[in-house]
Design a protein around this nucleic acid. Structure first.
Length: 587
DNA sequence: GCCGTTTTCGGCCCGACTGTTTTCAGTCG
């Protein structure tokens, strides 16, 4: 009889972080010290932000190495060791005896924290959202001391919001709404300044809610105005200086108003991220300073020192001001202290787009429409890169059609000055790692992309081998959307990204940063790892199928900033001659 | 539970809003 394999799945950083978070929540529910609770959540968040795998850290240096992870001390290090070596954590199991596991889920409902969750459980034995909904309908909660009918209403609304907002929305869905409201605010005579803040200003790929900030000497007028704008579905809270609404599209929007001399401190504070701010305040505290949304204060005298601009706030701590996109407490604070922040790539640095489809395959527009749009965007070059033959569903080009397209491109290059139209193609990496055409066809093109469009369920080994074979093909310049993820729809395919990074760097193959808002692939953390650990280079592409989508380059650049990329790392920022030279080097 | 340019003990980011209170706890960001 065959022994059942005892092979254990290797534990991921996310799993470790989730368990630590859950321990924190359970400790919170049973009323443990908030500092102990916070310590677990802090360790979890630190592990989530790690680019290296915790397992690897442990293999290299044991418990001692685990303790070098910020926020992880000797206790947590030992617990992580137990998890890694035995796959179990007795401490976690003991806690689950005391706190029913689903109770921590209730804490995900806005307005419900550990204390109320515990009271509800103790009084009514409820630990699921379904049970809670039922109890609310029967007005059971009002019987609990400290609970009124207002609380019932709020929890019910919290449940609805939780169910609706469970999935975060795409940056590209939130950004235009936020910009619109900021513009509206700026037009009001009683508003001095207004800006986006929070994860939106940091340009995260998905957004939970929209944070806005304004400065004014008449805060109550701003509040009155805000809750009456046409976008409001209902008002969650309205105060003197802070209000929250739910917009008609279901997004929660928070607006805070401060006085003009507080604006910089407030903008810094509300931009976050939370770990970034906590780290910053810790530094301030050690210097006898206190930071809040109103300014930086001397603790000894309680005198307000600065606050009008963000630069003042960072400056008084002896730091340069990090771009919002990298304020995640992943080393930017140390870099800002040592004045070695990188000069991140900007939208203005982009000279063209490598991945655009036309009606020759599955796009909507003519090549000339694309060229016009590229000119409008101020580009120096544009690559026409339709699908190739084997991707039948997308109407891929045959070699004959490609010849025809090459002639048209040559003609258009005669017609247009100031922009160069490069010939390209997005080939398909088949199940064996081969692409549509051989050197006799691909050799005629300026740029060749290769992407995986199917066979996602192959094993990790197979997928990795496929992609590496394409990378080793001397005619392939760019690997399109390397992980294949589609936000909210499809997880990334299982692939050994580190092997891919290594192969790409070794062969001079560029990795795509697909700027399409539901892809953003490679994502921020991957970009940074590929760059810093492997020396990879990248191409930012919109993958537009309509010319209107070519403006999504903005989201690609924002993601590149989040990955700490500079112009040197990104092919789009070079002069056309230089680009052609770099592309030919591989052949 | 973590951590050290005031500390190996005694601190730990900080303030707004809500609701059920009569001076404050809970929650959020």
């Amino acid at each position: 009889m065959a022994e059942r394999a005892q092979k254990r799945e290797e534990i991921s950083n996310e799993e470790i972080a989730r368990i630590l978070d859950e321990i924190g929540d359970m400790l919170d529910i049973i009323g443990e010290s908030t500092f102990r609770v916070r310590a677990y959540h802090k360790a979890a968040s630190s592990i989530r932000g790690l680019t290296k795998s915790v397992l690897e850290v442990y293999k290299e240096g044991g418990v001692k190495a685990l303790e070098t992870i910020p926020g992880v001390g000797s206790h947590t290090a030992q617990r992580i060791e137990q998890l890694i070596t035995t796959g179990r954590l007795p401490y976690y199991d003991e806690l689950k005896q005391k706190v029913p596991a689903p109770l921590t889920e209730l804490m995900n409902i806005p307005g419900l924290g550990p204390k109320k969750a515990k009271k509800i459980y103790d009084a009514l034995g409820i630990m699921t959202i379904e049970g809670l909904t039922k109890a609310l309908e029967e007005h059971q909660l009002e019987k609990i001391p400290g609970f009124g009918h207002k609380t019932e209403e709020n929890i019910l609304r919290g449940i609805r919001q939780f169910q609706k907002m469970h999935e975060r929305i795409l940056l590209s869905d939130a950004y235009p709404v936020a910009r619109e409201i900021v513009e509206l605010l700026r037009q009001q005579p009683f508003v001095e300044r207004a800006n986006t803040a929070g994860s939106l200003r940091r340009m995260k790929e998905t957004i939970g809610d929209i944070d806005l900030l304004s400065s004014s000497n008449e805060p109550s007028r701003v509040m009155d105005f805000f809750i009456s704008i046409p976008q409001v579905a209902y008002v969650l809270a309205k105060g003197e200086t802070k209000s929250s609404i739910v917009a008609k599209n279901g997004l929660q929007i928070d607006l805070r108003v401060v006085s003009p001399e507080q604006y910089g401190a407030a903008l810094q504070y509300f931009t976050g991220s939370k770990p970034h701010n906590i780290h910053l305040r810790d530094i301030a505290r050690k210097r006898g300073l206190k930071i809040n949304e109103y300014g930086v204060f001397d603790v000894a005298t309680d005198k307000r020192l600065v606050g009008r601009t963000e630069e003042e706030v960072y400056g008084i701590l002896g730091m340069d001001t990090p771009r919002p996109a990298i304020r995640e407490d992943k080393g930017e604070i140390e870099a800002a202290m040592e004045r070695r922040l990188p000069r991140l790539i900007e939208l203005e640095d982009i000279k063209g787009d490598f991945h655009v489809h036309t009606k020759w395959s599955d796009g909507i527009n003519d090549i000339e429409d694309v060229v016009q749009m590229a000119i409008n965007l101020g580009y120096k070059f544009i690559v026409i890169s339709d699908h190739a033959e084997k991707l039948y569903v997308a109407g891929g080009l045959t070699p004959e059609e490609m010849e025809e397209q090459l002639q048209l491109i040559a003609m258009l290059n005669q017609k247009y000055d100031g922009i160069e139209i490069l010939s390209g193609m997005e080939t398909n990496i088949d199940n064996e790692g081969n692409v549509d055409f051989g050197p006799e066809v691909l050799g005629k093109l300026d740029v060749v992309l290769a992407s995986i469009h199917g066979g996602f369920r192959q094993s990790k080994d197979q997928l990795t081998r496929r992609m590496i074979k394409a990378i080793e093909n001397p005619y392939i310049n760019i690997i399109g959307h390397p992980t294949g993820r589609i936000l909210g729809q499809r997880p990334p395919y299982e692939i050994d990204l580190r092997a891919v990074f290594k192969a790409a760097a070794g062969t001079g193959t560029f990795l795509e940063l697909n700027a399409y808002p539901n892809r953003l692939d490679l994502k921020d953390d991957h970009l940074r790892e590929a760059k810093e650990e492997y020396g990879c280079k990248f191409a930012i592409d919109t993958d537009a199928h309509v010319v209107g989508h070519m403006v999504y380059m903005e989201y690609g650049v924002a993601t590149a900033q989040r990955g700490w990329l500079t112009t040197e790392d990104v092919l789009n920022t070079y002069e056309v001659l230089e680009i052609k030279k770099m592309l030919r080097q591989k052949r």
